[in-house]
Protein backbone atom coordinates (compact mmCIF):
# COMPACT_ATOMS: atom_id res chain seq x y z
CA UNK A 1 0.00 0.00 0.00
CA UNK A 2 1.43 3.36 -0.96
CA UNK A 3 1.75 6.31 1.38
CA UNK A 4 -0.89 8.13 -0.65
CA UNK A 5 -3.34 5.30 -0.11
CA UNK A 6 -2.64 5.22 3.60
CA UNK A 7 -3.18 8.96 3.96
CA UNK A 8 -6.19 9.26 1.65
CA UNK A 9 -9.08 10.73 3.62
CA UNK A 10 -12.04 8.44 3.98
CA UNK A 11 -15.72 9.22 3.93
CA UNK A 12 -18.52 6.85 4.81
CA UNK A 13 -21.74 6.20 3.02
CA UNK A 14 -24.78 8.04 4.40
CA UNK A 15 -25.60 6.59 7.83
CA UNK A 16 -28.24 7.20 10.45
CA UNK A 17 -27.13 8.33 13.91
CA UNK A 18 -27.95 4.87 15.25
CA UNK A 19 -25.74 3.28 12.62
CA UNK A 20 -22.92 5.73 13.36
CA UNK A 21 -23.15 4.94 17.09
CA UNK A 22 -22.93 1.19 16.37
CA UNK A 23 -20.00 1.64 14.02
CA UNK A 24 -18.13 4.06 16.33
CA UNK A 25 -19.24 3.35 19.91
CA UNK A 26 -18.14 5.90 22.52
CA UNK A 27 -16.07 7.79 20.00
CA UNK A 28 -15.94 11.31 18.69
CA UNK A 29 -16.95 11.66 15.05
CA UNK A 30 -16.90 14.43 12.46
CA UNK A 31 -19.92 14.43 10.17
CA UNK A 32 -20.86 16.09 6.90
CA UNK A 33 -23.93 16.13 4.68
CA UNK A 34 -26.19 16.03 7.72
CA UNK A 35 -29.74 15.78 6.48
CA UNK A 36 -31.38 17.63 9.33
CA UNK A 37 -34.90 16.89 10.49
CA UNK A 38 -35.02 20.46 11.83
CA UNK A 39 -32.35 23.01 10.99
CA UNK A 40 -31.65 23.99 14.61
CA UNK A 41 -31.77 20.63 16.32
CA UNK A 42 -29.30 17.78 16.40
CA UNK A 43 -31.54 15.15 14.83
CA UNK A 44 -30.73 14.17 11.27
CA UNK A 45 -31.83 11.44 8.91
CA UNK A 46 -28.39 10.53 7.59
CA UNK A 47 -24.87 11.92 7.59
CA UNK A 48 -21.47 10.83 6.37
CA UNK A 49 -18.51 10.24 8.69
CA UNK A 50 -15.22 11.90 7.73
CA UNK A 51 -13.36 11.35 10.97
CA UNK A 52 -13.55 9.29 14.14
CA UNK A 53 -11.49 8.49 17.20
CA UNK A 54 -11.42 8.07 20.93
CA UNK A 55 -10.32 11.62 21.59
CA UNK A 56 -11.91 14.91 20.56
CA UNK A 57 -8.86 15.76 18.51
CA UNK A 58 -8.55 12.63 16.34
CA UNK A 59 -11.62 13.24 14.12
CA UNK A 60 -10.80 16.94 13.88
CA UNK A 61 -7.40 16.12 12.41
CA UNK A 62 -8.99 13.75 9.88
CA UNK A 63 -11.74 16.24 9.06
CA UNK A 64 -9.33 19.03 8.18
CA UNK A 65 -8.59 17.18 4.92
CA UNK A 66 -12.23 17.81 3.97
CA UNK A 67 -12.49 21.40 5.17
CA UNK A 68 -12.30 22.96 1.72
CA UNK A 69 -15.14 20.77 0.48
CA UNK A 70 -17.57 21.11 3.37
CA UNK A 71 -18.62 24.41 4.90
CA UNK A 72 -20.37 22.69 7.81
CA UNK A 73 -18.76 19.89 9.78
CA UNK A 74 -20.39 18.41 12.86
CA UNK A 75 -18.34 17.23 15.82
CA UNK A 76 -20.18 14.81 18.09
CA UNK A 77 -19.67 12.15 20.73
CA UNK A 78 -21.52 8.90 20.07
CA UNK A 79 -21.79 7.86 23.70
CA UNK A 80 -24.14 9.24 26.27
CA UNK A 81 -23.37 12.48 28.01
CA UNK A 82 -23.74 11.42 31.59
CA UNK A 83 -21.27 13.25 33.76
CA UNK A 84 -21.74 16.83 34.77
CA UNK A 85 -18.67 18.61 33.52
CA UNK A 86 -16.67 20.47 36.10
CA UNK A 87 -17.68 24.05 35.54
CA UNK A 88 -14.53 26.04 34.91
CA UNK A 89 -14.05 28.80 37.40
CA UNK A 90 -12.96 31.62 35.14
CA UNK A 91 -11.02 34.25 37.00
CA UNK A 92 -12.99 37.40 36.32
CA UNK A 93 -10.73 40.40 36.56
CA UNK A 94 -12.01 43.78 35.39
CA UNK A 95 -10.69 43.33 31.86
CA UNK A 96 -12.34 39.93 31.40
CA UNK A 97 -15.57 41.31 32.87
CA UNK A 98 -15.46 44.18 30.39
CA UNK A 99 -14.86 41.77 27.52
CA UNK A 100 -17.89 39.70 28.50
CA UNK A 101 -20.13 42.72 29.01
CA UNK A 102 -19.13 44.58 25.90
CA UNK A 103 -19.20 41.50 23.66
CA UNK A 104 -21.93 41.20 21.11
Amino acid sequence: MSAAEVLAPEISEPLTWAEICVRHPDEWVCLVEMDRVHPNNFEFRTARVIGNGKTRREPVEQAMAWRAEYELIGHYFTGRVTVRPPRPSLILDEEIRDIIRSGR
Binding site: Y70, I73, G74, H75, V81, R87
Partner: peptide, 15 residues
Protein backbone atom coordinates in the same frame (compact mmCIF):
# COMPACT_ATOMS: atom_id res chain seq x y z
CA UNK B 1 -16.26 27.25 7.88
CA UNK B 2 -18.95 26.24 10.32
CA UNK B 3 -19.14 23.47 12.85
CA UNK B 4 -21.97 21.94 14.79
CA UNK B 5 -21.54 20.50 18.23
CA UNK B 6 -23.46 19.52 21.30
CA UNK B 7 -23.33 22.00 24.14
CA UNK B 8 -24.62 21.80 27.69
CA UNK B 9 -27.08 24.52 28.60
CA UNK B 10 -25.63 25.82 31.85
CA UNK B 11 -27.38 28.66 33.61
CA UNK B 12 -24.64 28.64 36.25
CA UNK B 13 -21.83 29.45 33.82
CA UNK B 14 -20.99 33.12 33.28
CA UNK B 15 -19.52 32.58 29.86
Amino acid sequence: GSSGGRLVLDTGAAM
